[in-house]
Amino acid sequence: MKLRIKYSKLGNLRFIGHLDVMRYFQKTIRRAGLHVSYSKGYSPHQIISFAAPLAMCITSDGEYFDGEFEEISTSGEMIDALNQYGVEELKVSECVLLPDEAKNSMSVVAASDYMITFKALTEEESSGRMLEKENVTNIGNIETDDTASENAKHILECVADFHSQSEIVILKKTKKSEKEENIKPGILKIAVKDNGIYMLLSTGSTYNLKPELVMEALCQYAGISYNFFDFHIHRIETYMEDENGDLMPLYKAGRNF
């Protein structure tokens, strides 16, 4: 039986890599005593596969993996078991049974949406920054923070005009060459929301647009120098296309059991 499991990756665990998350769930499944299927041979491994990997430092409420199971109980019981034997920052929120013919999550991903918040506009700064400041006596800090929040406000003001451009061209650097690329088709939605920016972007094998690239383009448009650490990026959900070509969250491909 093929299940699709949705989980969050939050807090400090934004600093563990994709492979570490996979290893974590393999062990959690065993601790929770769930009957996952194994491959054959001398070193059998669990038959599970993960959807679109998340870059480090980004948090998410919309991560997925699919797994083949020998035995299942109910969605609720399996979610509870995984959370009871897991850590808080990797919480499971959905567990659905997929139809037999369902394609795996990795191959169906079409889009993801994100919420970008500005560290200068949220009161709570990461404690590491505070600690660092305690150690450095720099009176200029307060001023710098003021400029940062003004810059953030300016970026927010630019969002609508930025999106209304007919083309959004950026210089994409690869190992071999630099080429210009119009990323506008990848931006399905972008809007200001609660002092931050909401964006829905193409994700997956057809066209993959990273939120940090959009932010870079936006900063450039606003005439403000781009720094990844000025914002926090949070993925809200990962989507696939339904039979009509409309976007739906990946877990809607299955049903609760």
């Binding site: 400090n12 600093f15 563990i16 570490d20 590491g128 920054r129 600690l131 650490f229």
Partner: peptide, 15 residues
């Protein structure tokens, strides 16, 4: 966390 995002992202294996 004792280390800032900037530092953790600038080093190998922050985990």
């Amino acid at each position: 966390l004792a280390l800032s995002d900037e530092i953790l992202m600038s080093i190998e294996k922050p985990a």
